[in-house]
Every structure is written in structure tokens, then in C-alpha cells.
């Protein structure tokens, strides 16, 4: 891979080097590969969103009633989730809509504070050591969020400044990464408002790659991309991992992508992990339809298919 594309941040290297190897903490059967330092530890993480009833409803219900109503309407988005990811792993999070994948990613990226448990990035707690963690991570979300009137170059230069990348160096890297992802120079210097969704998504991916995160949090990064672009992005993710030992957390609804990219996959449902293994390991747990070789999609449907077949989901423990 072209070395100029990835800038090593000294802080990140220092952090990775000083991390104690602590893989013994993770459950053996589905734990991260032994030997590599732990990049991410999620320890009984929990996130609940309270839905407060409106003022009128609260007055009507009285104080006790309102508290009960609030508890009833609370959404447990992430429910006691624990896992560990080794440096250089690509870790997949699969699950039906609204099961807490994005919430989990936000907890890791310091955008939400957990209600219980702890999350550590190379041993640093995401709440207590927020700034150190922020230097090590970056995230791509489903929506590409940009200043729409600004060009990709201006948007990414803004990001570069926030991550203390010198503007001259940033300029060359921005052009290199965006070209690599298939944007032509005209698009790089034109306002983003006229770009297609897929092109905007590529710029969002470039923004994350630009800052050379030690942990890359990808929340449905390829949703909305055409098959070529998907492969470009997947190849880029793999390269980041192979050349820089970047650790990747990936959520996706594309089972082929998960199968092709991920070293291990967790299947999450209702805020809880219902399975965690390598893609091959997961496929071994179920039989394919008509005794054919099962795909990851078969696994997904079998493990999260309560609605289809009552009681079909195996016990999570």
C-alpha cells in the first residue's frame, strides 16, 4: 500500500506499545487470538435510553406514576455486553435493526456515556481517559455528515486540523485517499451538496482513514455503495489492517461483507450478544437449508429469527 496514505500518529503508536497484554481476561472459546495486545475491552457495558413522558402526562400520572411510566418506556439498547478485540482484528457486529449496534459503537467513540460497565481502548477508559481515546479512534456512520456547502477538501482539512495533521501533508493525503476511493479531482474541489449519497459516503470513509486511527469504528460504512465501491472500501479496510495493524469494529447488514472481512463476528439481538465466533465457527453451529453448506445469512436468520419461529433462538449464554 502507498505509504503516504497513512500517517502514523505518534500518540497512537506510543499507546499501542505501552499496552499490557491482557487477553487472559477474555473468554477462551470465542476470545481474541492470543499473543496480540488487546485493542478493545468491553466489560459488561450497558446503555438505557429513558423516554420521559411529556409534562402534561407526568402531572396527570403524579410522581410515582410518572416514574413507573418512565421505566416502562425505557429502552435497554445495550444490555450487559462483554467482549474483547485484539489489535489487528476485524470484528463484526451483526444484528437486526434497532438492536443496539450503533449505540455500542457510540459508547466506544465517547459519544455516549455507559450507564454500567466499562469500555477500554488499549487499556484507557473511554470515560475517564476520553481525550486519549479520542486520539486513537475514528468512526464512520451510516450517514455521511458534512458541511454540505463545503468541498470534500475543505471538510477533510477541517477534520485534519482537529486531529493536528499539518495542512500541507493533509492536502496530499486527502487527494491520495479520495482518488484511491474513486473520486475525481473535480469532485474533490466541488461543494458536497451535489454529490450522490455513495460519493459522500466515500468522503466519510476517507475522513476516518485520514486520521490513521488505531481503532476504526465502521457503522455500516458500505451501505449505499455500489458493488465496485464496496470492494474498494473493503480492500482499503484490509490494507489498513495488514499494513498498520488497525483494529476494526464493523457493523453491516451485508452478510457477504461480514463473512469476507471479519475475523470474528458477534450477533447481537435486543442489546445482547447471542453468538460470538469466527464466521466459520458460526456456520458450523447450524445446518444449512436442505443440508447445503450454511451461509452467514442462514446463521443470522436462525439466531435472530424469533418472530418467524417462536423459541428458535438459542440461549445466549
Amino acid at each position: 500500500m502507498n505509504e503516504t496514505l497513512i500517517l502514523r500518529t505518534p500518540a497512537a503508536d506510543e499507546m499501542a506499545a505501552s499496552t499490557v497484554v491482557a487477553s487472559a481476561r477474555a473468554p477462551a472459546a470465542m476470545g481474541p487470538p492470543a499473543g496480540a495486545p488487546l485493542a478493545l475491552e468491553v466489560d459488561r457495558a450497558r446503555k438505557v435510553f429513558a423516554k420521559r413522558p411529556g409534562l402534561a402526562a407526568r402531572l396527570r400520572a403524579g410522581r410515582r406514576g410518572a416514574a413507573r411510566a418512565e421505566a416502562a418506556r425505557a429502552v435497554v439498547a445495550v444490555d450487559d455486553v462483554s467482549f474483547a478485540v485484539a489489535q489487528g482484528e476485524i470484528f463484526g457486529l451483526l444484528g437486526p435493526n434497532g438492536t443496539g449496534k450503533s449505540t455500542l459503537i457510540r459508547l466506544m467513540s465517547t459519544l455516549l456515556i455507559p450507564d454500567g460497565g466499562a469500555i477500554r481502548v488499549f487499556g484507557r477508559d473511554v470515560v475517564r481517559d476520553e481525550m486519549t481515546v479520542k486520539r486513537m479512534i475514528n468512526r464512520v456512520s451510516v450517514e455521511a455528515s458534512f458541511f454540505k456547502k463545503l468541498t470534500p477538501m475543505e471538510n477533510l482539512q477541517y477534520a485534519a486540523r482537529l486531529y493536528r495533521i499539518e495542512p500541507g501533508a493533509a492536502h496530499d493525503r486527502i487527494v491520495a485517499i479520495l482518488r484511491r476511493l474513486g473520486l475525481d479531482d473535480r469532485a474533490i474541489f466541488a461543494p458536497m451538496e451535489d454529490m450522490s449519497r455513495g460519493m459522500q459516503q466515500k468522503v466519510a470513509i476517507a475522513r476516518a482513514f485520514l486520521t490513521s486511527p488505531v481503532i476504526l469504528l465502521l457503522d455500516e460504512p458500505t451501505t449505499g455503495l455500489d458493488p465496485h465501491s464496496k470492494r474498494d472500501v473493503q480492500a482499503f479496510v484490509r490494507e489498513m489492517r495488514d499494513t498498520h495493524a488497525t483494529t476494526v469494529i464493523l457493523t453491516t447488514h451485508d452478510m457477504y461483507e461480514a463473512d469476507a472481512l471479519c475475523d470474528r463476528v458477534a450477533i447481537i439481538d435486543g442489546g445482547r450478544f447471542v453468538a460470538l465466533d469466527t464466521p466459520a465457527g458460526l456456520k458450523r453451529t447450524i445446518a444449512g437449508p436442505d443440508r447445503s453448506a450454511p451461509t452467514l445469512e442462514d446463521v443470522f436468520l436462525a439466531l435472530t429469527g424469533r418472530a418467524l419461529e417462536e423459541g428458535a433462538a438459542p440461549d445466549p449464554s
Partner: peptide, 14 residues
Amino acid sequence: WEGTIEYTFMAPVR
């Protein structure tokens, strides 16, 4: 309004 708030808040700036 622009939708960038999470990116600015995630960046390592005080």
C-alpha cells in the same frame, strides 16, 4: 443542522 455534531465532539480537541 449540518449533522456534523458527532464528528466535532468525537475529535480530540478540548
